[in-house]
């Protein structure tokens, strides 16, 4: 297969950026879009040109490192795939493919398609954990957890932290990411003692870091490679209100 690629190139965080065109030749259907970019980069290096900067690591959809906007959609089409899992068989022969970085104020571009997502770590740091000191845990089966609760916690915990939800949101909100962590831990008895503190701290930090609010567009779930459900945003809102009451009492 052969494609024309329009790729966003930007030398640094403050440099102006723009699209450049490349031909991708001899592309196999089974290739992932990153493997195609690898191939293009090999040619660029050999020609003494600057290869396209993009990131990846696990290349099987779990580390959350990759993440490109492909034809205007974070992680591209079809749904429920990360960029590294996206195979070329989903594109039309000869098609022009536009590739851009995730864009959001809180996720600034470092170079070309590489962005800075440390803001997501700062969100977790503000409260996305259970304070459970090594050595002080009760025997694991002491507290049974209803299978349904555990399954729902897991549905939320599957988030890979790629940031596509932020990139897709018109308000650059991190509500789905934060909601997933808040819900995962709130759903389990081990996470309850700190539930109020957690939700207050994390939502506060979200604003400080410049993430926007949620105005119910739900673009986030649509692009989420793990299909994290927007119900976790409502769940977080409920936790937040509970926390307010708790404070008042």
């Amino acid at each position: 297969m052969e494609f024309l690629l329009r790729v966003w190139r930007q030398a640094g965080p403050d440099a102006p950026g723009g699209f450049e065109e490349y031909r991708a030749r001899d592309v196999k259907e089974d290739m992932s879009i990153l493997e195609m970019l690898d191939q293009v980069n090999q040619d660029l290096v050999k020609e003494g040109r600057d290869p396209i900067v993009f990131e990846s690591d696990c290349r099987e959809g779990i580390c959350g490192v990759c993440g490109l906007v492909i034809e205007g959609v974070p992680h591209g089409e079809p749904k429920k795939t990360t960029t590294c899992e996206l195979r070329m068989r989903h594109f039309r022969e000869g098609q022009t493919i536009t590739i851009e970085p995730f864009r959001a104020g809180a996720l600034p571009i470092i170079k070309d398609l590489m962005v800075d997502r440390t803001a997501l770590d700062q969100l977790i740091q503000s409260g996305g954990y259970v304070s459970s000191r090594t050595g002080s845990s009760p025997e694991a089966n002491t507290i049974p957890v209803a299978k349904q609760d555990q399954e729902e916690a897991m549905d939320a915990a599957e988030c890979i932290g790629c940031g596509a939800c932020v990139a897709a949101c018109p308000n650059a909100s991190a509500m789905l990411f934060t909601g997933a962590k808040v819900s995962h831990l709130a759903k389990l008895p081990q996470g309850r003692p700190e539930a109020a503190r957690r939700v207050t701290a994390m939502t506060g930090r979200m604003q400080e870091l410049g993430f926007g609010n949620c105005s119910n567009h739900y673009e986030c779930q649509a692009v989420c490679p793990k299909d994290i459900h927007v119900k976790f945003i409502s769940r977080m809102n409920r936790e937040f209100i509970k926390a307010l009451f708790k404070k008042k009492n």
Binding site: Y129, S132, S137, P138, A153, H184, L188
Partner: peptide, 14 residues
């Protein structure tokens, strides 16, 4: 396993 459960790791359950 005790520690991981206390951390809120959603291990599969019966």
């Amino acid at each position: 396993i005790d520690l991981c459960v206390a951390q809120g790791i959603p291990f599969t359950r019966e």
